[in-house]
Amino acid sequence: MPHPESTPASPVDAGHIVELERALARVAYLLTRVRRHEQALTQCGVQMDRASVPLMRLLADSPEPLRLGELATRLDVEAPHVSRQIQRLERAGYIERVPDPADRRAQRVSPTVEGRRAVDAVRDVLRGWMREALSDWTSEDLKALAVLNHRMVDAFLDHAEVTGDDGATARDRPRR
């Protein structure tokens, strides 16, 4: 869906799409490197495996506790994977189970105070690295990059909803 402040080029330039895909692959690689993850956790003093970080971020950003099935859907992973992660995070003191007010047989999970501290510490380290790496960028460039990235992710999610290959829905994410 085009934004009023811009009009999309028509048709989409295949060369630009190729370059965008390459750039996104490079970003994904940089963000998921095991060594970088271990450095971040060491720097902030948090003991957490790499797969738990997105789950903890999702829980920390949620205004209410979530069911395990909802977590699996939003993370686009299998429910047993989430169950194992939740057990590890619970043992580590990062999350707690709470009763589901809509169904007394079910439970939801939310981060503990320590879990929120851990997420904040990881985010602080990663944001510090970004600040350092992008220190010579202008505020206007950083704002434009953030706006365009949010717009791109929203477009990807809108397309995924149409094609049915994503668990997130429009209500799951803020519009930018």
Rank of each mutant, 00 (worst) to 15 (best):
A92N: 07
A106I: 03
V125F: 02
E114V: 06
A146Y: 07
S139N: 10
E78S: 04
Q107Y: 07
W137I: 00
R91E: 08
E78M: 02
K143M: 06
V77K: 14
H81C: 10
V125Y: 09
S135F: 00
I95N: 05
P111C: 11
A92H: 06
G93A: 14
D136V: 00
R108E: 15
I86T: 11
D136E: 09
A121G: 11
A106W: 03
R105N: 11
P111G: 03
R108V: 09
D76E: 12
T112N: 12
L89A: 09
G115E: 04
T138Q: 05
L89M: 13
G115V: 01
V119L: 08
E114W: 04
D100S: 03
A79W: 06
Q85T: 00
T112P: 04
W137P: 01
L145I: 13
A121F: 11
R117S: 11
V119W: 08
S139E: 15
I95F: 12
V122F: 10
R108Q: 15
E132I: 01
R131F: 00
A133V: 00
A133H: 03
R104L: 11
T138L: 03
A121P: 15
E114G: 01
E114H: 13
D103L: 02
H81W: 11
E78L: 04
R116P: 10
G115H: 02
V125H: 10
R91V: 05
A118I: 07
D120I: 02
R116A: 05
S135Y: 01
R108P: 03
H81K: 06
R84V: 14
R104E: 13
A102S: 10
D124F: 09
D124T: 15
Q85H: 03
D141N: 07
E90N: 13
L134T: 02
V147S: 02
D124Y: 07
L89K: 04
A144W: 06
V109I: 14
L145D: 07
E96V: 07
D100E: 10
R104S: 14
P111R: 07
A121R: 11
V77R: 15
R88N: 10
Q107V: 05
E132W: 00
R97D: 03
G93T: 09
I86G: 00
E140Q: 12
R123A: 12
A118M: 05
I86W: 08
R108L: 14
P111K: 03
A106S: 13
S110H: 02
Q107L: 06
V125K: 00
L142A: 07
E90Q: 12
W137L: 04
E78I: 00
I86N: 05
P99A: 03
L134Q: 03
S110D: 10
D141Y: 05
V147E: 02
E78T: 00
